[in-house]
């Protein structure tokens, strides 16, 4: 009747993997950020699944903290993207190579 916890974990892992795939294969900075958001969401789903599984609300608190940190990260990251775009005229990560030794 109830859904086994492993299904939820599988979904979370697939989302995390898709995020990794986005980061490894795409070069548009904004799509990279979307990949990071997907990974964070996969982690959140894991937190909530285990929270439900153990009957403990601490996972909810962790997921709350992750959501707030994701909001801050998105704001800062997109501001940096804006600055880089003004500087370089492109959002391709391969164009931003000033720090490459």
């Amino acid at each position: 009747m109830s859904i086994p916890i492993s299904w939820y974990l599988l979904v979370a892992m697939i989302l995390f993997g898709i995020g990794i795939l986005a980061i490894l294969t795409r070069r548009n900075v904004i799509v990279l950020f979307m990949g990071i958001e997907l990974m964070l969401n996969g982690c959140n789903l894991t937190f909530l699944t285990f929270s439900r599984s153990y009957g403990n609300s601490v996972g909810h608190v962790s997921a709350f903290l992750v959501i707030a940190i994701a909001a801050a990260e998105a704001a800062i990251g997109l501001a940096i993207t804006l600055a880089v775009f003004r500087h370089k005229g492109s959002v391709d990560v391969n164009e931003v190579r000033s720090l490459r030794g």
Binding site: I14, L15, I18, G19, A22, M34, G35
Partner: peptide, 8 residues
Amino acid sequence: ILSAVAVI
């Protein structure tokens, strides 16, 4: 999952 695949 499908829409996440569509994202990338």
